[in-house]
Structures are given as C-alpha cells and as structure tokens.
C-alpha cells in the first residue's frame, strides 16, 4: 500500500476541511488512511468529532496534520 491520501485544507475555515475530508473518504475502502492538513483551530476538534460520528478511527493530531483511518 502506498502512502496515505492527503487533503490540503491549509488556510480553509471549518467546516471546509471536514467537507473536503468527507468527499475524499466517500470513494475509499476501509483501512484507508487520510491525512488532513488544516490550520483552522476548529479542525483539531471537528476532525475527531467527525470520526466519532461516522464511525471512523481518529489516529492522531500532530500540529496541523490530522490523521484518520476509514472504517
């Protein structure tokens, strides 16, 4: 498997990073990892919350890099 998919949402305000993540996630299978680059302070809360609501796994936040794994 190649590296994770990346969503570049730097400079975008919420809910755009989550919308971009959801659109990309829709076409991918369980186990896929997606990294979201987002510097909006709301993203650090909203990306884990999106995972919880949709049943995906939130892996980690490292600065502006938020990693999720699709169920």
């Amino acid at each position: 498997m190649s590296g994770p998919l990346v969503v570049d949402a730097l400079g975008r305000r919420c809910p755009l990073p989550v919308i971009m993540l959801a659109k990309l996630a829709a076409g991918h299978s369980p186990g896929t990892r997606i990294e979201v680059l987002a510097d909006d302070p709301a993203a650090a809360v909203d990306i884990p919350a999106w995972c919880r609501l949709r049943g995906h796994t939130f892996i980690s936040t490292d600065g502006d890099r938020h990693t999720v794994e699709l169920r």
Partner: peptide, 17 residues
C-alpha cells in the same frame, strides 16, 4: 475571535454548524 466555542471544544463535540 474566529475560534470555536471553548465549551464545545472541551466536550470534544462538533463545533461547526
């Protein structure tokens, strides 16, 4: 402030919408 509510953030619930 352009920051989400500290209440919603502390709870870990969705802050947008």
């Amino acid at each position: 402030t352009l920051r989400p509510s500290h209440v919603l953030a502390a709870m870990g619930v969705l802050t947008h919408g």
